[in-house]
């Protein structure tokens, strides 16, 4: 009986991904960890750098599969640069909608202006990383919060007024698709 329930659950869940560790993932994790160590410690004598090398090697040995799921290819670098090019546009967008929410906060007749609604749509982004980036970008933009994403790629978004929610998914999805190479 319990076994049936477990099998039922297994059918409903998305298939498990096989995580592979590869040499390039170890090296990339080590470089990132070492950079964070240098920034956090701020001392560049031999003793502190040696401790950093030791700690970074330990971390990258145990958890190299957390950051990169497979060997680094040209696609990884293209995705990184695409993401870095996407961040300034996201910041500009956050500033614009922050001004709108600020206007709502200080408006004397705010209760008549806001109209919270839940928008539902299905995205066409395929990879997990692109969907996570999309959901977090929606949440970071003031006025919209991603409340639920299932593995059919259905997004439920809570928007505070029609102005914030009407242009979803729109421009943001197109830019993320371009950044992650899913045109």
């Amino acid at each position: 009986m319990e076994k049936d329930a477990a099998q039922q659950l297994k059918r409903d869940l998305p298939p498990q991904r096989e995580w592979k560790k590869s040499g390039s993932a170890y090296i990339a994790t080590f470089i990132i960890m070492m950079g964070v160590w240098c920034v956090l410690s701020g001392q560049f004598d031999l003793f502190h750098l040696g401790l950093g090398v030791l700690a970074s090697a330990l971390v990258s040995y145990y958890s190299a599969d957390l950051l990169f799921d497979g060997p680094m290819t040209g696609k990884t670098f293209r995705t990184t640069f695409g993401f870095l090019a996407y961040v300034p546009w996201l910041l500009y967008q956050i500033l614009l909608s922050a001004l709108h929410v600020l206007y709502l906060c200080f408006h004397p007749r705010m209760p008549e202006l806001i109209d919270p609604q839940i928008y539902r749509f299905r995205t066409r982004l395929k990879s997990d990383l692109a969907q996570v980036t999309f959901a977090n970008s929606i949440t970071l933009t003031p006025g919209t919060i991603t409340i639920y994403v299932n593995f059919h790629r259905d997004f439920n978004v809570h928007a505070i007024d029609p102005f914030s929610g009407e242009d979803l998914p729109g421009e943001m999805e197109r830019r993320i698709a371009r950044a992650f190479g899913e045109e």
Binding site: V101, C105, L140, P142, I160
Partner: peptide, 9 residues
């Protein structure tokens, strides 16, 4: 919306 996002920016 205001508490999480406006504080972030």
């Amino acid at each position: 919306h205001p508490a999480g996002k406006l504080d972030g920016i």
